[in-house]
Amino acid sequence: MAETARSLDGEVASGIAETGAEGRARPRPGEWVVVGIALAYAILLLFAPLAALARGALSRGVRAFFDALSTPDALSAIKLTFLLALGATAINTVFGVAAAWLLVRDRRFPGRRFVNGMVDLPFAVSPVIAGFMLIVLFGRTGWLAPLARAAGVKVLFAFPGMLIATTFISLPFVIREIMPLLGEIGEEEENAAYTLGAGRWRAFWSVTLPGIRSGLEYGVLLTFARAVGEVGAVLVVSGSIVGLTETATLFIFRALDERNAVAGYAMAMLLALSSFVLLTAMEWIRRRARSR
């Protein structure tokens, strides 16, 4: 990333001396204060805690770090988190693409504006409430409880409930990332495919999907990142049964409760690292899309 940053700066420098192609100027002495404030704020708020966490997690050595993460409880938590994130991402990708396509292309989609507004709600709802909604819905007197009972599925305090909760809180990402792209590429390429004999499905796969690829990838990564990191909703619906319904975040939660700082910090560090990987991937997608 440093490399790309440097090349970007180089690009600006090779442009016009004072205000480059991107319009950025080297700050004048007085203005360093402003830059300094921004940097100091970011360092104190964002980077210092991150460094502190890294130090905390590695304070007992690298060995202890890996040991803490290879206990059966930790491994099962990591596995469950991964499965949940994967499941939620899969569901939200498939339905998200369908929903985005309908919202942009299908002018006769019933209640289009209303649905469009509804999609944002998961962002506005506190994750705790999201989890609580499922408790209400599938609890003893819940509306959908009979349905779950009839199907013989245990929703609450089990995988299905956690999956629904995770899906809910990460729902809007794919839709919101794709919709502007769909609007931007327009219908004409799809129409061209139709006139060349392609069916709707064919046109979608070979024309629409490649056109929205960068947005889709970005949305998928965001969904995945959000799903991995979710705590509130999952905490409420999971019941935190060790080794069974305990995700990585719940593992941290319990470790802190039990004053097992090393395990908690180690898992937190792992999650932080994974989010850095995702962040880097996202940045890469963004740059690639911009260079097109």
């Binding site: 964002l46 210092a48 805690p49 991150l50 502190a52 966490l53 130090r55 905390g56 965001l222 990142a225 991995v228 990191g229 979710e230 705590v231 509130g232 975040t249 941290i252 939660f253 802190l256 908690g264 910090y265 937190a268 999650l271 932080a272 989010s275 850095f276 995702l278 962040l279 996202m282």
Partner: peptide
């Protein structure tokens, strides 16, 4: 964008550590 990517619980842990 880091705060969007880092799990909020991890955020909490980081702040406690520091």
């Amino acid at each position: 964008d880091m705060p969007f990517a880092i799990p909020t619980l991890v955020t909490g842990v980081m702040l406690v550590v520091l």
